[in-house]
């Protein structure tokens, strides 16, 4: 976490053709700077924890367990947790289960379009170590090599109660300022990009989807 990326220069955007390269930004993202006054930062963190806009990415079976969260029985709204249909407005990225290589590409694009500070929650055992798809030809086994995960909720599948417990755990982490996945991603962008490009063979998108 000590590397300073300002010295690294703009992104290469190698995957794009020269005429496409002009259409996309090659600027590096900037890490989130906390407010200089500690009380303000603590207050803002508390607000962030209580206003979680969720972008649900139903990659796998997890999406089925995600929907009941909003129903009468579980009602995640009372914890300040609400779904948001577009990545631009969301602050929590919910990965609903296993991620195949093809989905991973979409996950990266959606994640990078979210505005920081942003948090990633991965549901199920599959993002942790592949779960029952550990030997599959297209399921990633260690999800945090590609996207910084702030919270894993394990289980196959985790029941909505567990998801609620996970939401509360995420709130606790955000309040304490420990959910720093956004900055980890930006500060180690080259490492993450190298990992992503190692498995995504047809990288035909900009290096950072603004």
């Amino acid at each position: 976490m000590t590397t300073k990326d300002q010295s690294l220069g703009p992104l290469a955007n190698d995957g794009l053709s020269p005429e496409e390269r002009d259409l996309f930004s090659d600027a590096r993202p900037v890490p989130y700077q906390p407010y200089p006054i500690e009380v303000v930062e603590k207050f803002v963190n508390w607000v962030r924890a209580n206003s979680l806009f969720m972008l649900a990415f139903g990659t796998g079976c997890g999406a089925v367990e995600l929907n009941p969260l909003m129903t009468a029985r579980y009602d995640a709204y009372r914890f300040g947790f609400q779904p948001r249909p577009t990545p631009r407005q969301a602050s929590v990225f919910m990965i609903g289960g296993y991620a195949s290589v093809k989905t991973l590409k979409r996950i990266i694009r959606s994640y990078e379009q979210m505005q920081g500070p942003k948090f990633v929650v991965a549901l199920g055992i599959c993002p942790v170590n592949g779960g029952m798809y550990w030997d599959s030809y297209n399921t990633v086994n260690q999800f945090d090599l590609y996207i910084p995960v702030d919270l894993y909720i394990t289980g196959c599948m985790p029941r909505p109660e567990v998801l609620l417990a996970g939401v509360l755990e995420l709130k606790k982490k955000i309040k304490e300022g420990r959910a720093d996945g956004h900055n980890r991603y930006i500060e180690n962008l080259d490492w993450y990009k190298a990992n992503q490009k190692r498995i995504i063979k047809n990288w035909d998108m900009p290096d950072y989807s603004w």
Binding site: N129, D135, Q142
Partner: peptide, 15 residues
Amino acid sequence: TVSYSRERFFDREGR
């Protein structure tokens, strides 16, 4: 598929 997955997706330690 097993060896492909091992060399491409890296098993996590402790599984």
